[in-house]
Write a protein that binds this DNA or RNA. Structure first.
Lengths: 93, 93
DNA sequence: ATATTATATTCCAATTATGGAATATTTACA
DNA sequence: TGTAAATATTCCATAATTGGAATATAATAT
């Protein structure tokens, strides 16, 4: 069965529907980060958990990656994320 | 355990992570609608399914309702929804 | 009171997500 | 080649979501 527009949007929202992955998004809103920096900032989560979170966000196109030696750098791949998060923050404050 | 900001945001995104509920959001972006109008527009889904979809969206504060006789009218309760959907549409086009 | 219309809820089996633990891959450098 | 550091993947038991079917509620009119 072929995916509708809302099927694809639902996948994007599903990728965002997890607090760990939202913690990652928050960090990337501040600019590109390597995995090691993300792990450093989110020490409370296991390394494989963060790695899987990044993979999920990447799989729906929300973030992109770039390799440099041993490091992998991730950054946001969708411009309107910050605006929407700011809006949600206001509503939830 | 007490909910963090990102726990609450995750719940909002979870509510949005379903194509039927996104179909409902699309309709409400056009303005307030009663359940009967939503059912009319989304005939392919069962009535209880639509009712549950509305309940889920309301439970996280994305939409609000208003009763008038036998009818219940729903409308969006978050201003930045349209803007973000437009952004996603562009990316997914 | 009863019937009708509009909407909501409950129950449930099947599917999918979650995160921990162990393991694998990739790159660089001695 | 061998080792270490950075990152990714697989496996798995538990938990959560999904949507259909049946049923319930609420408001109005007769």
């Amino acid at each position: 069965m072929t995916k509708t527009l809302n099927d694809k949007k639902a996948e994007i929202f599903k990728a965002l529907s997890n607090p760990v992955r939202l913690d990652v998004i928050d960090l990337l809103l501040d600019g590109e980060k390597c995995v090691c920096e993300i792990q450093q900032a989110l020490k409370k989560y296991e390394q494989p958990h963060i790695s899987k979170s990044l993979a999920k966000l990447k799989s729906v196109g929300l973030i992109k990656d770039r390799k440099d030696g041993l490091n992998v750098y991730y950054s946001l791949n969708i411009c309107c994320m910050g605006e929407f998060m700011t809006c949600l923050n206001k509503i939830l404050k």
